[in-house]
Simulated assay, not measured.
Amino acid sequence: MQLAFPDAIYLVDAIQGGEMLMKACKPALESTYVTKVIHDCKRDSEALYFQFGIKLNNVVDTQQIAYTLIEEQEGRKRLPDDYISFVSLLADPRYGGVSYLEKEEVRILLRQDPKFWTYRPLSEMMIRAAADDVRFLVYIYRKMMEKLNARSLWYLAVRSALYCRCFCISDNNHADWPSLPPIPDDISAEKNAPEEEILSVLDVPPGKMGRVIGRRGASIMSVKESCNAEIFFGGAKGPPDKVFLIGPVKQVRKAEAILRGRMMDL
């Protein structure tokens, strides 16, 4: 785990430091007062939750959420399947304009050897790559915060919180997690006030996931296009039999109905 501050970067080695080291980090990771800036927090949150019992909180996700909100504010409607990688975000002149070629080298090594990050001691390249993954996040965060209006800041807070919960399957519907940020009074009083946002998890019967996704993702893409909801799958890392939906209540319920109908199709 990498921790970047304005004046330093720390690499927290959970493999060598183990549970004791992660417990020392837990108060800050769960704190409401310490902002955590992460590019795509879903899998990080899942790992922290299931391996160390940490409920990641007060996160700013620079991937889909903040980037998309800024794009929408500036009148650019992004497609449902648009994806902004950290390398692409960093290369964007509005947020960094920095080329990150070594990241691709690390990806190649990781594809060749999935255990790449488990080897110790860390090589100079591994240390440099780990540090570079977070080195620019503080700067990107500040640039993004300058652009977001009050409404977008609320969306960012609530969506980031829902992203943190996304793959963290809970029997109590995340009742023991921090409360979601409420809609501010000044925004709820607006004529087109935003709707409450939720996370919904659908169980997919055995053998039905292919029908839900469709050929080359066509089925799920049509759902995304007709519903203002984000849809995620556990994929190879799991859970493989669930679909995760995030968005306004009515849009999520609409997506649920469509997906359930497709699960029932013969």
Rank of each mutant, 00 (worst) to 15 (best):
A91C: 10
D61P: 12
E72W: 03
D61E: 11
Q51C: 10
K115L: 03
L90C: 08
R135H: 10
E74V: 02
I54H: 04
I108Q: 07
E74L: 02
A129E: 04
I127Q: 11
K103D: 15
P121L: 00
Y119C: 03
V106H: 07
R94P: 09
I54L: 05
E124I: 04
Y119K: 07
Y119F: 02
N58V: 02
F86P: 12
F116D: 08
E72Q: 08
M126A: 06
V59P: 15
I127T: 10
E71D: 06
I54V: 07
E124A: 04
P121F: 08
L69G: 15
E105I: 13
V59A: 03
E124Y: 03
K115C: 00
I127E: 09
D61K: 07
S123C: 10
V60I: 10
P114S: 06
V138F: 11
Q64P: 09
T62I: 02
T118H: 09
D113M: 00
M125R: 15
L101F: 05
E124C: 00
D133F: 03
T118W: 03
A131Y: 01
S123M: 09
A66G: 11
Y119H: 09
D92M: 06
A91S: 14
M125W: 08
F116Y: 15
I140L: 01
K55Y: 06
R135P: 14
N57C: 10
N58Y: 06
V87K: 12
G75Y: 10
P114Q: 05
S123W: 12
R76Y: 05
K77F: 01
Y67M: 04
P121N: 02
E102Y: 06
R94W: 05
T68H: 10
A131C: 05
L137T: 12
Y100W: 08
F52A: 02
R120P: 13
V138W: 13
Q51R: 11
L122W: 14
P80L: 04
Y67C: 09
K115P: 12
N57G: 09
T118I: 00
L137V: 12
D81H: 08
L137Q: 12
Q73A: 08
A129S: 08
E71F: 05
D82P: 12
G75L: 02
V106R: 04
R94L: 02
R135Q: 08
T68F: 05
K77A: 06
Q73G: 12
R120E: 03
S85D: 15
R107I: 01
E102L: 06
F52H: 14
I127D: 10
K55S: 03
D61T: 11
F116M: 04
D113I: 00
P93H: 03
I84M: 11
R111M: 03
Y141E: 02
I140T: 13
I70W: 14
Y141I: 01
M125V: 11
